[in-house]
């Protein structure tokens, strides 16, 4: 099934359209001028990072409930793409923060919880690679992903629960009309691309797990490994 290639192509198309629209046709932001155009990259990245982590959470529940490698592969795909979006988010934010707030970074509640989010989900991937027994590894990946997800609503509500330097949640009411559509189109572009990349990584992971499953056991090598470990 190559549906995700089509989805990825659609993502590139949407993202290209949304960004061209935002860069060349939408008006500059009243206060920030042209710098404000990073809105079309940063806000879609933020929304989709949270959304992809939500997908990972659902996949983690599916993985633990069914113990199926198909769910587990999707889980890995979503967590990886989520971490990439999350890291991008922080760099885009830093680029935007310097000319507007005056600093690249500040330990305000939103930024701090977002940085912790990278550590948590990167931790899920690191944990996963520490275990080689398939059942143990699957459970560890699922459990850590479910627990890491707790921080996602905390990041989302950070600007509501605590006072912060970061602005509050954007909504159609707070974004001026000519900026709505480039923002929405860019957001769908990032979503399609994120799902396409996750699907590709899930496919690769599924193949890897199957290879692992059907690989002949090597009693001697196993024994040597165990001896070496002691």
């Amino acid at each position: 099934m190559k549906w995700h290639y089509a989805l990825g192509a659609l993502g590139v198309l949407f993202l290209g359209t949304g960004h061209a629209w935002g860069l060349f046709f939408a008006p500059p932001e009243f206060m920030m001028g042209d710098v404000g155009r990073i809105l079309y990259a940063h806000v879609p990245t933020a929304w989709n990072a949270m959304l992809v982590y939500l997908f990972a959470f659902v996949a983690a529940i599916g993985t633990l409930w069914t113990s199926k490698s198909s769910w587990e592969s999707w889980l890995v795909g979503f967590v990886e793409v989520g971490v990439v979006l999350n890291i991008l988010l922080c760099f885009q934010g830093a680029m935007w923060a310097k000319p507007t707030w005056g600093v690249y970074w500040d330990w305000d509640p939103r930024l701090t919880t977002t940085a912790i989010l990278i550590a948590l989900f990167a931790g899920v991937l690191i944990q996963r690679n520490l275990f080689h027994a398939p059942d143990k590894r699957r459970i560890i990946t699922g459990v850590t992903a479910v627990i890491a997800f707790v921080n996602v609503p905390i990041v989302y509500f950070a600007t509501t629960w605590w006072n912060s330097l970061h602005q509050g949640l954007s909504s159609p009411d707070t974004v001026s009309n000519p900026m709505h559509w480039p923002l929405r189109v860019s957001a769908f572009g990032v979503l399609f691309l994120a799902v396409a990349f996750s699907a590709e990584r899930a496919k690769q992971e599924r193949a890897r797990l199957e290879r692992e499953d059907t690989a002949p056991t090597l009693p001697l090598a196993q024994k040597q490994l165990e001896l070496g470990a002691e």
Binding site: F30, G36, W101, V175, S176
Partner: peptide, 19 residues
């Protein structure tokens, strides 16, 4: 240190409007 706190409102420029 002085930091500017922007709002979550993104506006197109308007003639004569103030912050």
């Amino acid at each position: 240190q002085l930091l500017v706190k922007h709002s979550n409102e993104y506006k197109a420029p308007e003639e004569g409007a103030t912050a």
